[in-house]
Amino acid sequence: MRIALLHSRVRVEERLLLDELASLAIDHELIDVRELVFDIHDPSTWTRFDAVIDRCIGQSQALAAVRVFERFGVRTVNPARVIEACGDKLTTSLLMAQHNIPTPRTCVALDEASALAAVEHVGYPAVLKPTTGSWGRLLARVNDRDAAEAVIEHKSTLGSVQHSVFYVQEYVQKPDRDLRVFVVGDRAICGIVRHSPHWITNTARGGVASVLEITPDIRDLCARAARAVAGPDGALLAIDLLEAPGRGLLVSEINHTMEFRNSIAPTGVNIPRRMIEWIVESSPNAARAHSTARAAPFDASPSDGTLSTATPSNAAASSSPPRPRASLIEELKLGPWAAFDAHSRTEVA
């Protein structure tokens, strides 16, 4: 089996994944997305890979590259469908609503005036988020109409084109923590509790992590959420949950290129190892890939100075092209509303 690790920067996570690929004696290559040139008429350069792991930080680059690989018949983890579903908060929310998965009440509006109506519909306090991006960037909690008007005007005047979509969520009166669950396939393998006195609890923003017990409720909810964004094939995901008093757990966000460096120690789970093992085991050529990997001696210092192991290369990476999937747009059957409630399809503007 031969795996490409597609990246834009080599962070701690990518290093850990490379270490696991090496320790499992899986033939692999590191591909910098900034240096890619695809001839879309000629897949022959790329079909030597059985799988491509997308670890790009930039979503636009990742999605473009993954689409090309998929069209070439190379399996991608995660696939374009999952990047589309998770990289855009509105799409995630629509899928959660469509599959009756509990999630914070969400409205979307496409104009300043209707944005204010959406906030008023959700009620105060409300949270305005960009539909893309993460690490808690540019989230705004608005506690009253004055604040809402100010934030909406600022987004309209100063924001990028992405800020012309106003994604508004109820503010969930949660404890000073939220939960992050790591899902491999559709199985929750471990999780952390992120504590912070600030309402944004991302560890990238200073939140402190401790281990989360994976209860049957968490396992079931995460499996449903994973299937909603990834279908039966599963994916590698980090699902953020909120504890809503009186309502139970809500799916807040789903991350498709998750960071996990701060979660290995508190959980005691080798997350990158589990990710690689799942990719191998769920491969269409799993039996052959496994036996090849085990048989291959790993040379930590290959003579040609590369990171690749000495495993003989794969045979036909493109022999089992992924089956076609319905487009998300068709699946979601989006309605014509300019500002609407993602849960009830009730027009609010």
Partner: peptide
Amino acid sequence: LAPEVEEDWGE
């Protein structure tokens, strides 16, 4: 110096 953030960076 590594870029701190770019427009569509996530996770």
